Simulated scan of single mutants.
Amino acid sequence: MFKFNSWRHKTLIYYLKGLTLQSPNPNPFFQHYPLPFSLHFSTTTSDDSTSFAASYLINNLGFSTQSASKLCSTYNFTFKTAQNPDSVLHVFRNHGFSDSQLRHMIAKLPELLSCNPSKRVLPKFQFFLSKGASKSDIVNLISQNPRILSPSLNNHIVPTYELVYRFLKSHKETIARVILNSAFHGDYHVPSNIKLLIENGVSESNIARLLRSWPLALRTRYNMVKLVEELKDLGFNPSKTTFSIAVVAKTYASETRWKEKVDAFKKWGWSDEDVVNAFKKQPYCMLVSIDKINLLMNFWVEQLGWDPLVLAKGPSLFLLSLEKRIIPRAQVVQFLLKKGLREKNASLTSPFIDSNKLFLDRYIKRYKEESSYLLKLYEEKFTLEDKTEMS
Rank of each mutant, 00 (worst) to 15 (best):
C115L: 11
K80Q: 02
T65L: 12
F97E: 00
V91H: 04
F97H: 00
S98G: 03
L61A: 00
V91T: 07
N76P: 05
S51W: 11
Q66N: 13
S87D: 01
K108E: 13
P117C: 01
S100Q: 09
S69R: 11
G96P: 04
T65I: 10
D86L: 06
Y75R: 13
I106Q: 00
P110K: 00
A53G: 06
P123Q: 02
P117H: 03
H90I: 12
H90N: 15
A82D: 07
P85K: 00
K70M: 11
S67L: 08
L122S: 06
Y75W: 13
S100A: 09
S100R: 08
F77W: 04
Y75E: 14
S73W: 10
C72V: 03
Y56E: 08
L89S: 04
R93L: 03
K80C: 04
S118M: 12
R120D: 06
N76V: 09
P85N: 02
Q83D: 12
V121S: 01
T74H: 14
L122R: 09
T65R: 14
S100H: 06
Y75I: 13
S64V: 09
L112V: 00
I58F: 09
D47K: 15
H104E: 07
D48W: 14
S51M: 05
L89A: 01
V121P: 06
D47F: 14
N116L: 08
D86Q: 03
N94P: 07
T78A: 11
D99E: 08
N116D: 11
L89Y: 00
F79E: 06
L112N: 02
H104A: 09
G62Y: 06
A53D: 00
S69Y: 08
A68K: 02
N84I: 12
L89T: 00
A53S: 10
N60L: 03
T50Y: 14
T78G: 10
S55F: 15
D99A: 04
P123E: 04
R103G: 05
T74W: 12
V121A: 00
R103Q: 12
L102K: 01
Q101N: 05
S69N: 10
R120E: 09
F52Y: 12
K119E: 12
L71W: 10
L109A: 07
A54V: 07
N84D: 09
N116R: 09
G96L: 07
L109P: 03
P117A: 03
L112E: 03
R93A: 05
D99M: 10
H95Y: 09
R120N: 12
L109T: 07
A107G: 10
K124N: 05
P85R: 02
L113H: 05
N60T: 00
D86I: 06
Y75N: 15
H95N: 14
S98T: 10
S118R: 15
V88N: 04
K124F: 07
C115Y: 08
L113C: 01
S64M: 11
L122G: 02
S100W: 05
V88W: 04
Q66S: 15
S67G: 03
I106A: 02
L57P: 08
A68T: 05
N76R: 13
S64A: 07
N116T: 12
E111Q: 15
Q66L: 15
H90F: 11
T74V: 15
